[in-house]
């Protein structure tokens, strides 16, 4: 039967990969089987699974951008964020579940960058799922050894006077980088500032955009 791909747009408006029309793989077969077994056993329901997918789809770097913009404009919030980033983001109204979040502030002297060498730990409950490169062997291997070379591949070149701090998410904490606020943004609103904050700037492989 023909498949109507308009039913398969992600909330970002991008099509899902067209797995409906590719040959069924062994692992896809397993996913269907596991899902149906969990439903038959009463462990979950199709509605719960759909709701979980919707919850994760609704999380995106735009959430983190709002947090960063607030930190740039509200000194009290910035202090709260640096002291307890989980509490500060919850206070902004974000449902981050059990996420233990630490905020790392970039300054003229310090540039932070986040990696998970053991797997793919990422503040997914705030920013959504990590980009593919974050999960790659190359990023996970090299960032802890030659961070400046990795940053250069992302177009970020730092002066020798800046200390690079790499953060390996090895256990229970997750990290969000607060990029430095670009110069010339004094008159921008919080909303306009948030538009300058990219996903990569909150991982540390990018800088905030210039207005």
């Amino acid at each position: 039967m023909p498949h109507d791909h308009h039913d398969h747009l992600s909330p970002s408006g991008h099509p899902y990969r067209e797995d409906d029309d590719t040959p069924l793989s062994y692992w896809q077969t397993m996913e269907i089987a596991v899902r149906e077994l969990l439903v038959e056993k009463g462990i979950t329901t199709p509605a719960d699974i759909a709701a979980q997918i919707e919850t994760m789809d609704a999380r995106s770097p735009a959430n983190g951008a709002q947090v960063v913009a607030r930190a740039w404009t509200d000194p009290a919030f910035r202090a709260e964020l640096l002291a307890d980033a989980s509490a500060a983001t919850r206070d902004m109204g974000f449902d981050i579940g059990p996420l233990n979040l630490i905020a790392l502030e970039n300054t003229a002297d310090v540039h932070n960058v986040v990696v998970c060498t053991l797997c793919s730990c990422y503040p997914r409950n705030l920013l959504g799922l990590p980009p593919d490169w974050y999960k790659s062997r190359a990023y996970r291997s090299r960032t802890v050894r030659e961070p400046r070379a990795v940053l250069a591949e992302f177009g970020v070149t730092l002066p020798d006077t800046t200390t690079v701090r790499v953060h390996d998410s090895t256990a229970d904490m997750r990290y969000i980088v607060i990029p430095a606020r670009p110069e010339g943004t004094e008159n921008l609103s919080e909303h306009e500032l948030a538009a300058l904050v990219t996903r990569d700037s909150m991982i540390g492989t990018g800088l905030a955009k210039l207005p």
Binding site: V144, T163, D168, S169, T170
Partner: peptide, 20 residues
Amino acid sequence: LGDIWGEDTPHPDDTLDAEI
């Protein structure tokens, strides 16, 4: 980084934080 990879690593005073 110099204490992890040796002093001849580029920028040995850059740092690595991990949860242990």
